[in-house]
Simulated scan of single mutants.
Amino acid sequence: MTAPPLIDVVDLERTFDVRRRVDGSRRRVRESVRAVHDLTFSVGAGEMIGYIGPNGAGKSTTIKMLTGILEPTGGHLRVAGLEPQRNRVELARRIGVVFGQRTTLWWDLPLQDSFDLLQKMYRIPTDRYRANLDRFVELLDLGDQLDTPVRQLSLGQRMRGDITAALLHDPEILYLDEPTIGLDVVSKGRLREFLRALNAERGTTLVLTTHDLQDIEALCDRVIVIDHGTAVFDGPLAGLHAQGGSTRTLVVDLVDEADPISVPGATVRRVEGPRQWLSFPADASAAPIVGAIAAAYDLADLSIQEPDIEDVIRQLYQSGDRA
């Protein structure tokens, strides 16, 4: 028998009433704006989902409905078998939420005190709390920061603290909104490794919203793209790239100037002195292209530029394919 989805969304809708000026006059009229409409998807236990789209697409509104902050104005919504708005307290014990630019920690308190307060709020048994805290502090390298006031932590340290805080009560679902924003490469890598381990060891369901496609590629097997309040794609990231025809860019710095590079699978788009820009399909591996270039040319440096989320969605529409 197939298990029911952990998150079940059917024809979800959320409208807001706004007042707008009429023709520059002082008179205002009330209008209804649909932030989310006809949105349908489901998420099974243990899945790692990328929930992406351009700014203003409806991502944050969706997450607020999933967590019970906002009430839907239409459709069906269940999270862990509960109606989020009507069962906010019960649901809060089963989910964790991390917003990249907002902290749930107490700004002037040491990090340890924030964790201790959350233990009391969630009524976490002491043995379970200590085991979880010790595990997450070790994995996220927070041991030296426990006595530091939150306001003195770096952005990367605070983010790791927020993720620890969101997981102390063993939630079934973790919502992450831009969790790597502003982090350096090392901190991003450490955080991604932790999230992969969390999913593998505990089966935690992950819903990730981000503009960083590298986060999606590193963590998520499935992507849901939302635009203008409704889903326009639901499937693997490679399928999104294939439908939209998006490309990645390989920036190659040669030791000396040369004619445009010729290697299978890539096309030179621009040449400036010893630097050349080559494009290749975003769902293709860069390894054979890099290997072919390294074998035939003297390289000084190279880097890969990922497609922007907005560009991917724009190309999806231009291709005429809508999921």
Rank of each mutant, 00 (worst) to 15 (best):
L6T: 07
V10L: 14
L12E: 03
T15A: 11
G24F: 06
R26N: 12
R30H: 05
S32W: 10
S32A: 13
V33Y: 14
R34P: 09
V36E: 00
V36K: 04
S42L: 08
G44L: 13
G44V: 08
I52P: 00
G53E: 01
K64H: 13
I69T: 10
P72V: 00
T73A: 07
R78G: 03
L82N: 04
P84N: 04
N87K: 13
A92M: 11
R93V: 02
R94F: 07
G96A: 10
V98D: 01
T103V: 05
T104E: 15
T104G: 15
T104L: 14
L105Q: 04
L105N: 00
W106I: 09
D113S: 14
D113C: 10
S114D: 08
L118S: 02
R123V: 11
R123I: 09
I124Y: 02
I124S: 04
R128M: 13
Y129K: 11
A131K: 15
N132W: 10
R135Q: 14
R135I: 09
L139T: 03
L142K: 06
L142W: 05
G143R: 09
G143Q: 13
D144S: 13
Q145K: 15
L146M: 15
V150H: 01
R151W: 12
G156F: 05
A165R: 09
A166R: 03
L167T: 06
H169F: 08
D170H: 15
P171L: 00
E172H: 14
E172M: 12
I173W: 04
L174R: 05
L176G: 01
T180P: 03
I181W: 02
G182V: 06
K188I: 04
G189Q: 11
L191A: 06
F194A: 03
R196S: 08
A197T: 12
N199F: 01
R202W: 14
T205R: 01
L206H: 00
V207P: 02
V207T: 07
T209I: 06
T209Q: 11
T210Q: 02
D215Q: 04
E217K: 13
L219H: 00
C220M: 01
V223P: 00
I224E: 02
D227N: 15
G239M: 08
G239Y: 01
H241E: 01
A242W: 11
R248C: 10
R248I: 01
L254P: 14
D256L: 07
S262C: 11
S262P: 11
R269P: 08
W277R: 05
S279H: 07
P281H: 01
A286H: 12
A287K: 13
A287R: 15
P288Q: 09
I289S: 04
V290D: 04
A292S: 07
A292F: 11
A295V: 12
L299T: 02
Q305I: 12
I309W: 08
V312R: 00
R314E: 12
Q315S: 10
L316A: 00
R322S: 12
